[in-house]
Write a protein that binds this DNA or RNA. Structure first.
Lengths: 227, 227
DNA sequence: GTCTATATCATGATAGAC
DNA sequence: GTCTATCATGATATAGAC
């Protein structure tokens, strides 16, 4: 029995997924080559095609590995809140907290690669490739519907169209923040030890998002007349 | 005299820049090859190296062509506001409007390629490549300093650290919104003719951002104690 | 399941004719 | 300023030994 056989059955897949997560972020899906990925994973060049079938299938596997559990956990967080509320509508900040908290708990996990994935995800949301967009839309649809319904119950006076836009803005703020938080010079002034303190970031982000969600309605009517 | 000589002197450069703007968005800086770019521009493969020196230099030229005038115009908008105010601090919504308006005027310009560029820019902000980050930071620094100073005067009671984070959030909301607005399924429900109505989007976005900027302070102290 | 070797084609860059 | 031809390298994918 060789030493090799002691490894977990799917260690090669895991090593490839971890390497892909890091390198897709650094170079993009097209820019990261299979040679880069397999070299970083310490596996043979042929291993990607053997285990995943193609580079495209690997991209999908990278996204699904963490997105499926993340969205499941986001929905579960909402389920728990609604159970506690026993029929009453939830507070908007509680809904936002359930969504944001799931993401922020991942970005603290640098060793497990969670931070890499969250940053990769922030870039993937704005990827113009049709296949990527279709996949992301499909993976997010159930969670988005659940959150939209919760917001609608929490803020019945907010017009549906406006809610959809504000969810879009909130989603954007979150994903940009997570994708850019250590790449942008703007926040270079903040204390380095605070930069990955998810608790602190969560408090700041939630305050910002709650205020944006509950902002006074823009005077759309006057804008329409002027146009 | 050939028909060719009637063309503007630098039409080849312009054709390459336009093609690059579109294809860098679709495939990323690494994913778009020089063969793709020159084929789309209808010029020879060697033209990129002749006119720009290298692919990297082309990337920089694509970003500078529109970013330099955009930031100049953002600073000019702030100058005009401060001149009108004659020494009094500006209203936060006026400052936000000056910044956001410049971007939104570009996204209506589909024919001139402005929309492509704005979407490319949204993706570039989160690019992890060090050279790209350094370039973006350098191109934005003057405008950012001016806007930070204006916000500081408008909101003297907001702690500086909090302001920096909120500027980061606002910048993220704007760039994600502009990058993703026609790629994301979330807003598929809105009226198609409204989707690129910059006036309507500006009203919605400004309402969201102003509320976020002026949100009540998060209770950072209690968070710190708990951590 | 992992490896080497290879097939086929694309990549960025350049030299030199026109 | 534009072209063709070419270089060395790297790309995805696969066939077949172990």
């Amino acid at each position: 029995m060789s030493l090799r056989s002691v490894k977990p059955v799917h260690e090669t897949q895991t090593r490839i997924l971890d390497a892909a997560e890091a390198l897709f972020l650094l170079h993009g899906f097209e820019g990261a080559s299979m040679r880069m990925l397999t070299a970083r994973a310490g596996v043979n060049l042929a291993a990607i095609n053997y285990h995943f079938g193609s580079k495209d299938a690997l991209i999908e596997a990278v996204l699904r590995r963490r997105l499926d559990p993340m969205n499941t956990s986001r929905i579960a967080a909402l389920d728990r809140l609604e159970e506690q509320a026993a029929g009453r509508p939830l507070a908007p900040e509680a809904i936002i907290g359930a969504f944001v908290g799931t993401s922020l708990r991942m970005i603290e996990d640098a060793r497990g690669g969670g931070r890499n994935f969250i940053r990769l995800l922030g870039r993937t949301y704005t990827d113009p490739d049709k296949r990527i967009r279709a996949l992301i839309g499909q993976l997010y649809a159930p969670a988005m519907e659940r959150y939209k319904a919760a917001f609608t119950r929490a803020l019945p006076e907010l017009p549906g169209e406006e809610l959809v836009w504000r969810m879009h803005f909130m989603f954007g703020t979150l994903s940009y923040t997570l994708a850019a938080t250590d790449t942008v010079q703007l926040i270079a002034g903040c204390k380095p030890e605070d930069r990955y303190d998810a608790r602190l970031l969560e408090a700041r982000l939630t305050a910002f998002l709650v205020a944006g969600l509950m902002a006074p309605l823009p005077s759309v009517a006057s804008v329409r007349k002027a146009a």
